[in-house]
Structures are given as structure tokens and as C-alpha cells.
Computed example of a mutant assay.
Amino acid sequence: NQYRYLNMQHKEKPPEANLTELIEFVLLDFADVPHLRWLLFGLFSVIYITIVMSNGIIFLITKLDPALQTPMYYFLGNFSFLEICYVSVTLPRMLMNLWTQRRTISLVACATQMCCILVLGATECFLLTVMAYDRYVAICNPLHYPLVMNHKICIQLVAGSWISGIPVQIGQTFQIFSLSFCGSNLIDHFFCDIPPILKLACGDTFVSEMLIYIAAVLIVTIPFLLILISYSKIISTVLQLPSATRRAKAFSTCSSHLLVVFLFFGSATITYLRPKSNHSAGTDRLLSLFYTTVTPMFNPLIYSLRNKDVTAALRKLLLKKMA
């Protein structure tokens, strides 16, 4: 099949081929299952449309509904917009590859895609941390909440989440693509992610791997630990609430956020922090699908179906449209 042919073709290439000679890569994505091509195209098309529409609706209602003009929903609106950006970096190209069977991607486009994924992934880590901090202040220090989480602070926290990861991730992308690549230019993945790109690098990649671990600790591990600390204090406070109704409401709000946190951070941590010897193309693809596709798809369901304010705002919007 095409997958074997590409492998044979590139095995014939001389190992001396380096980055200056390499001008494009080949994204194999699902080339090893050509009989599932149209099924996968249909499935991922539906997933992409669902993600864009559902997150778009949440973004819209958090901006338009007066009842949702609070810090929690301000962060949720930004989070939904981020998910649309995040999934739009990978899925449209994968759909185009499935449709046209032209899997080549230029070196610049590959680096740009990787950089965007890393920057948006860092933003998601920071924004989830900000959302956990917001819940911590609201539940543990309710009297100080209006002062601590005022509009100016909310804007600064969101802006910081979007901007903080940019220098680190641009530097990391530049460092990875400054490596020499020899032999094959086949990327056994559906987008330009770090593990499959590093597999194509020749020579010593120790420095690159160490920098990836450091970046992953700073951007993934530390925010995750801060979220766990916030929620340990939140749970401790909630358990002391006298009213069972208030306890149930607090747990409902927090459990939605925690579910998203574990889905995203779990798959991202395993992808970037597990030993190189444990990396396999199939596992990398599966894990990447979780943090780039599954999480953005389930976020609106997790937040809207478990949140009475969001469902009420959605019902109000639908009634307006139908009137």
C-alpha cells in the first residue's frame, strides 16, 4: 500500500540529507488504514463542526447574556474561544490530507503548526490554572472575591495566559527545527508534534530532550500542581459548609473543571514527560487525539450540561431565535 511504498522510497534516500536540503515533510496520519479513509474523513468532519459550533455557542452566550457577566464565565468564554483556535490548527489540515491524499507539508508550515500547538497548549494550561484560582477565591474567600477578581484583574490574568507561553514555545520550536534531519522525512502522525519530529532528527538530541522536559515541567507540571493545591483547599472548605445544597452546588461546579483538567493534563503529561523508549507512533497519535480533539469536544458538554446558568442562557438564546 501507499504507506509501505513511501517507507521504501525514503529508505533509498542517503542519510546525509540534512535540514538545509529538506524542504518538506510527509504527514502519514492514517495512511496505514486506507480502507477507513472516508469513514475517518466523515467522523473528523463531524467532530470539527461539533467543536466549533458548541464552543462558539458557549463563547457567544458568555458575551451576550447579562446573567453570565461574571469572572467564571468570562474565563469560560475565553476557554471556549481557545478550544476553537486549538482544534483549528490540526483538524482542517488532517481533513485536507484525507480528502486529497496529498500529505506533504513544507518545513515552514510544519514549524508554524508545531509552534501554534505549543503556544495554544501552554495557554490552555495557564487558563485552566486561572479558572482553578477563580474557584478557589470564590469558595475559600467569598468576601474578598469582588475585590480580588475585579474586571481589570480578570483581563490581566487572561492576557497573561495567552502571552506567557509565546517566548518559550517559539524558542523551543526554533531549537527543534535547528536540528539536522537525515534519512526519512516521514512523520508518522497527523500533525507536527514534538515526539515524531524528534524521531527524524539525526545526531545527539539530548539537549533538545532536556529543554522539552524543562518546558513541560514549567508549563504542564507546575500549573497542574497549582490546580491540585487549589482544589485540595476548595474541597476542604466545601466539606465544612453547613448546607448540603451549597456543598452539592460547589462540588458540581468544581467537578466539571477537574474532569477537563485530568483529561487535558493527563494526556499531555504522558506525551511529553514519559521516557523516549516508551514512545510509539500509535500511542502518540492516540494521546494527541485526546488533548487536541477529545477534550475540546467534551468541554462544552461537561460545562453546559452540568451548569444550570449556562443551560438557562442557552434556552433563552434559542427561544429568542425561534421567536
Rank of each mutant, 00 (worst) to 15 (best):
L228S: 12
L228A: 15
I229D: 04
I229L: 12
I229A: 06
S230R: 00
S230N: 15
S230Y: 15
S230Q: 01
S230W: 08
Y231A: 03
Y231L: 03
K233R: 13
K233S: 09
I234M: 02
I234R: 02
I234Q: 00
I234Y: 08
I234H: 04
I235H: 03
S236H: 08
V238G: 10
V238R: 07
V238I: 15
L239G: 05
L239D: 13
L239E: 08
L239M: 09
L239I: 02
Q240M: 08
Q240S: 13
L241K: 10
L241I: 09
L241V: 00
P242H: 15
P242I: 04
P242D: 14
P242S: 14
P242Q: 14
S243R: 00
S243H: 03
S243D: 14
A244E: 09
A244H: 11
A244T: 04
A244K: 14
A244P: 10
T245S: 08
T245M: 07
T245Q: 14
R246T: 03
R246P: 00
R246L: 15
R246Y: 12
R246F: 12
R247T: 00
R247V: 09
R247I: 03
A248I: 07
A248E: 13
A248C: 05
A248Y: 12
K249H: 13
K249N: 13
A250H: 12
A250Y: 11
F251C: 10
S252L: 06
T253P: 00
C254Q: 01
S255D: 10
S255Q: 06
S256G: 15
S256Q: 14
S256E: 06
H257G: 07
H257F: 14
L258M: 10
L259I: 10
L259F: 10
V260M: 13
V260D: 04
V260P: 02
V260A: 09
V261S: 09
V261A: 07
V261I: 06
V261L: 03
V261T: 14
V261H: 14
V261M: 04
F262V: 14
F262Y: 15
F262P: 05
F262A: 06
F262S: 04
F262W: 13
L263A: 07
F264K: 01
F264Q: 01
F264I: 01
F264P: 06
F265V: 04
F265D: 07
F265L: 11
F265W: 05
F265C: 11
G266Y: 08
G266C: 04
G266D: 07
G266Q: 05
S267V: 03
S267R: 00
S267P: 06
A268T: 11
A268Q: 11
A268D: 02
T269V: 00
T269K: 14
T269C: 01
I270K: 07
I270P: 01
I270R: 06
I270W: 09
T271E: 08
T271N: 09
Y272L: 15
Y272F: 15
Y272A: 04
Y272R: 03
L273C: 13
L273S: 13
L273P: 05
R274L: 09
R274E: 05
K276G: 01
K276S: 13
K276D: 11
S277C: 02
S277P: 01
S277V: 14
S277I: 11
S277M: 02
N278Q: 13
N278E: 14
H279A: 04
H279R: 11
H279I: 12
H279Q: 15
H279M: 09
H279L: 11
H279D: 14
